[in-house]
Amino acid sequence: MRDVVFWLSGAALAFVVTAGAFLLLANLATTPSEKSLNPDRGPVGSGPAIDLQLDRERLASLEPLPDQILDLSVENEDDEPLSDVNVILITSTENTALSDSRYYRQTVEKIPAGGAESVRFEFDLVVPEQPVRRPSAAPPEPSREILEIRANTPEGTSTVRTVILPP
């Protein structure tokens, strides 16, 4: 009787140890969550996490004219306050033959932990004159304007948003 109990206990123990080992291995190669596959890229670099929030309605109201205004929010997703966050706006056009990129920079002095600060850019969104093109070289529709917004922390973290404005 004791032998039977001994062998049954041994077999159960071997089963449990093997199953535990497989579970351990399975956990080591955990499949990433769906959230991590979101195309929204997180901050690049090491350091505190920052994010940029843009108002779509405000973006839709931008026109290819001087003196445009873009309000955005820089969010500190870290549990420590941030200081001296550089926010850069680069305006350009879809037509890469026109070297008309313009750079604008703002510095946010302090963003509390888990908080956000607003940034306002006043900039010119002037569509450059298109050169005379042959039919083969000309796109079928007007070039779109592109806004690239980057936020950089002194610790090296950066995040970027690219806005493509319809013609």
């Binding site: 779509r56 931008l62 592109i146 970027v160 404005l165």
Partner: peptide, 15 residues
């Protein structure tokens, strides 16, 4: 192409 502004999380030269 969209008729509304499009926002992407990559630099323009990577789109």
């Amino acid at each position: 192409p969209s008729t509304e502004p499009e926002v992407r999380a990559d630099p323009a030269d990577r789109l």
